[in-house]
Design a protein around this nucleic acid. Structure first.
Length: 836
RNA sequence: GCCCGGGUAGCCGAAUGGCAUAGGCGGGCGGUCUUAAAAACCGCUGCUCGCAAGAGCGUGCGGGUUCGAAUCCCGCCCCGGGCACCA
């Protein structure tokens, strides 16, 4: 190639190096025990294969690949696998519309994903690739289900569940947002159905506590804490003498028990109608309950909605003082939380206060608030409702005057002694509903026997293969029910005629363990070998969208703990993802990209036009990767120009300058241009190393490489030696490699003859960064007035003297009195003056 | 309403107690190349005043702490996200 023909051509460079990586299996790692050294497991959330990859995929794999490359070059063996979350509703809905088998559309999409991921040059160990829809994989999903089933962690129960009328399936609590199906947006209905659940609530406390031990973004931890929703309090028993029934309530404020003035039940409470029966309120209660049960769930949940309710015409006894409290039914009390009944303390709870005001119920203050303590009030409702701390009043003599926190424990102790209640904890978290009445998922490996009940499919009969059906449309039952031959079977226990379970599993089950399978993907005898998993797990760096903050990340944590408890994982592996990074979205003109808006940027088009390196480096350069960022075509062209400049300068330097050793030490540097180049290169090494290891500041890491390249332009390096130029350019290529691997590899190879991915991450040499003099900033009263060169080893006195010598400083001192001099060694001198 | 983020040039952003605006984009001015233009490449470019030297101003708004504040503290405004009748 002629020296004047150095034209950056990613279409030539990128496939050439991709071929080397594919032929040599560069990114493959073995599970051999013999392989030594530290390991790292870098994982991006697995993609759902539909259509083709979008810009969000390009971002997550650009981030992940940068981390993987950095880990490799800092001496770790890196597991960086890829797979597909291949079951799910979009493929099935497509099948309902077109009749195309979901397997066919999914496999087509997977092929397109594979093509593009390779075209992007992502450093994946492709030997471990799989899709969750492969029978060889979902047989282990079924095996895990059965492990949970046999240990009581998977169970079937009749329950009020969320039914999505559009998707025609039930949904997990986590998949209902503001009363609507997460995918369909349809208002969910409550149905009583027999469904399969995983007992995630058994793990509520461990899921909460172990958040402390993992390096996750604080807001994701907060979301998980809120979702688990642990509340500490007490259960207190209130007796109704008419029916001779005891009603237990849960309260976080047993210290306010003496302030209870009424008692409220949820409309769904099974005893409401029985209690009202025979009273003058019977009809009214019946009407209220009917209205509440049919009302729009989203409306009922609105905080601002006025409180409504109806008296039941009965009373319960407050165990602490024997008072009879009137009973009400009101829709602000929820059946799903606690016991579906509450004690109402209007003086110290906003909701109870609003209800009491509406219905003219008594309000009794039992905790003194700071204001009322100071100014004994004329208005007895002043400052109410008050939910803060303070001493008890209007309670029993033994508690009055006691701080409410102390009183809380004292009252709980009293309740326990009297058998009227006990300390108790409540969670918002519900068990995970995993049954789906849909086709395209992992079949639940259960056989229903009229005599034996639900029976596990024996291990040797796994996988239970998804049967072929004609019609994918769910009609209030799973499409699998239509495969009658498949459904009809015999009981593995007693041999009697029996039927297969026809529901499939929520696809979140598949993604709750896929990261374990990557460790030992070829294993046909087991889901994984615990000894192999121990070598890789936990994932050192997990990367994905924040939209999975609750669902996927909580379920995967639950699976990891449950599988460790059952002995299938080493006990010390309690968390799947030691560190988590959540990347922001790529927007266009401040809006989400979508086909409807017509503002979609296609990775395929960009990569074809500019190359994968440009697309990847631009996405990382655009801003901090955890933030949303706006796509700009001209910004991307700027990065393209920069990559071209680096490559061209490298190619020219390699061709034009005779081979020359790199300056080995600071003393070998002969002139100012050399010194500037060497210092900039070593400074950038420091900058990039901390940007990559301490935080994910890829944007500033790339900017530092740009600074090196800006120093190497022919005009600026007139006197520089070939060795210094080569060092600056090869350092730039080396530092850029994690973000733009092809062009960096090619430039580095031309300059040095070596393969950059086989080189250790560069180390900076302080001798090149430290200099004999530095620029001393001179301030008067904190304002910069001058800059002078100062010796690096100057004493404080010498620095002050330099400041005093400056004419510009003197101008501002003249006529004033010098009060003091502040010296920051290596940085500045600030002369403080005041008018004489 | 409560809990997190965030607000820096025309735009994206850098700087977490010490030179505000690194790097990039865009616009403007100048240059190289060209018969010429475009493209490409190179250089300068925060605002105001000033011929210049230079001075003043400038990190959402108002106060405070400090020799010194984008950075720390108090009060407010705006934007984004999460949660929200959970007793």
């Amino acid at each position: 190639m002629a020296a004047d023909d150095h034209h950056y051509d990613p279409a030539e460079i990128e496939p050439r190096w991709q071929r080397v990586w594919a032929d040599e299996g560069t990114w493959e790692v073995s599970n051999d025990e013999a392989a030594s050294g530290p390991t790292s497991y870098v994982l991006e959330m697995l993609p759902y294969p539909s259509g083709e990859p979008h810009i969000g995929h390009l971002k997550v794999y650009s981030v992940g690949d940068a981390v993987a490359h950095f880990h490799r070059r800092t001496g770790r063996r890196v597991l960086h696998p890829m797979g597909y979350d291949a079951f799910g509703l979009p493929a099935e809905n497509h099948a309902i519309k077109t009749g195309q088998h979901p397997r066919d559309s999914t496999d087509t999409a997977i092929k397109e994903f594979q093509r593009q991921f390779r075209r992007w040059g992502v450093s994946i160990d492709w030997t471990r690739e799989f899709g969750t829809h492969e029978p060889g994989v979902y047989r282990w999903t079924q095996w895990i289900f059965l492990q949970l089933f046999e240990h009581g962690l998977a169970y079937q129960k009749q329950a009020a569940v969320n039914w999505d009328p559009v998707e025609e399936t039930v949904l997990a609590n986590e998949q209902v947002v503001d009363g609507r199906g997460e995918r369909s947006g349809a208002l969910v209905e409550v149905r009583q159905l027999k469904q399969w659940f995983f007992r995630i609530t058994d793990y509520a406390d461990r899921l909460l506590e172990d958040l402390e031990a993992i390096r996750w973004p604080e807001h994701v931890k907060t979301m998980q804490r809120n979702w688990i929703g642990r509340s500490d309090g007490a259960e207190v028993v209130f007796r109704n003498d008419d029916l001779g029934a005891d009603y237990t309530v849960f309260t976080t404020r047993p210290d306010t028990l003496f302030g209870a003035t009424f008692f409220v039940m949820a409309p769904e409470h099974p005893d409401v109608l029985r209690l009202a029966a025979g009273t003058e309120h019977e009809d009214e209660v019946r009407n209220y309950v009917n209205r509440a049960l049919t009302a729009d769930k989203t409306m009922r949940g609105d905080v601002d909605k006025a409180k409504t309710g109806v008296a039941l015409g009965r009373t319960v006894i407050n165990p602490v003082n024997g008072e009879a409290l009137p009973m009400y039914v009101a829709d602000y009390v929820l059946m799903e939380y606690g016991t579906g009944a509450i004690m109402a303390v209007p003086a110290h709870d906003e909701r109870d206060f609003a209800f009491a005001q509406t219905y003219g119920l008594p309000i009794r203050r039992v905790i003194e608030s700071p204001q009322t303590a100071q100014t004994p009030c004329e208005d007895e409702l002043q400052g109410l409702p008050y939910s803060g701390d303070g001493p008890l009043v209007n309670s029993a003599p033994e508690f009055d005057g006691m701080g409410n926190r102390a009183a809380l424990s004292a009252i709980v102790a009293w309740l326990e002694r009297e058998g009227k209640g006990r300390g108790s904890v409540n969670y918002r978290l519900r068990d995970w509903l995993i049954s789906r009445q849909r086709y395209w998922g992992t079949p639940i490996p259960i056989i229903h026997c009229p005599a034996c009940g639900p029976v596990a499919v024996p291990d040797e009969d796994l996988p239970v293969v998804l049967p072929e059906v004609e019609d994918y449309k769910p009609r209030g039952r799973s499409p699998l029910a239509a495969a009658e031959e498949w459904v009809r079977t015999t009981c593995p226990q007693c041999g009697a005629a029996a039927e297969r379970e026809t529901d499939t599993m929520d696809t979140f089950v598949d993604s709750s363990w896929y990261f374990l399978r990557y460790c030992d993907a070829g294993n046909e005898a087991a889901a994984w070998d615990p000894a192999v998993v121990a070598r890789w797990m936990p994932v050192d760096q997990y990367i994905g969208g924040v939209e999975h903050a609750i669902l996927h990340l909580l379920y995967a944590r639950f699976f990891t703990k449950a599988l460790a408890d059952l002995g299938h994982l080493p006990g010390e592996i309690q968390e799947p993802f030691a560190a988590l990074f959540t990347q922001g979205m790529i927007l266009r003109d401040g809006e989400k990209m979508s086909k409807n808006r017509g503002n979609v940027v296609s990775p395929k088009t960009i990569v074809e036009q500019y190359g994968a390196d440009t697309a990847r480096a631009y996405i990382l350069f655009i801003g901090p990767p955890d933030q949303d960022a706006d796509w700009s075509d001209s910004g991307m062209e700027g990065v393209h120009r920069f990559l071209g400049r680096l490559w061209r300068l490298s190619a020219e330097a390699a061709a034009d300058l005779p081979d020359h050793p790199l300056p080995a030490s600071a003393s070998g540097v002969s002139n100012q241009d050399d010194e500037r180049l060497m210092r900039k290169a070593h400074w950038a090494i420091d900058k990039d190393t901390s940007d990559m290891s301490e935080r994910f500041n890829f944007n500033t890491a790339i900017a530092a490489v740009m600074e090196i390249v800006n120093e190497v332009t022919p005009a600026k390096r007139a006197d520089a030696s070939p060795g210094a130029v080569r060092f600056a350019l090869s350092t730039a290529a080396s530092l850029l490699f994690p973000f733009a691997p092809h062009v960096a590899t090619d430039a580095y190879h031309r300059l040095t003859g070596d393969r950059v991915w086989e080189q250790p991450w560069p180390a900076s040499d302080r001798a090149f960064i430290e200099t004999a003099t530095f620029e001393l900033v001179l301030q008067v009263n904190g304002k910069v007035r001058d800059r002078v060169q100062a010796p690096s080893d100057a004493s404080r006195e010498q620095l002050v003297a330099l400041a005093r010598e400056s004419e510009r400083v003197q101008q501002f001192i003249d006529g004033n009195q010098v009060v003091k001099e502040i010296v920051v060694p290596g940085k500045l001198v600030n002369v403080v003056v005041r008018p004489a």
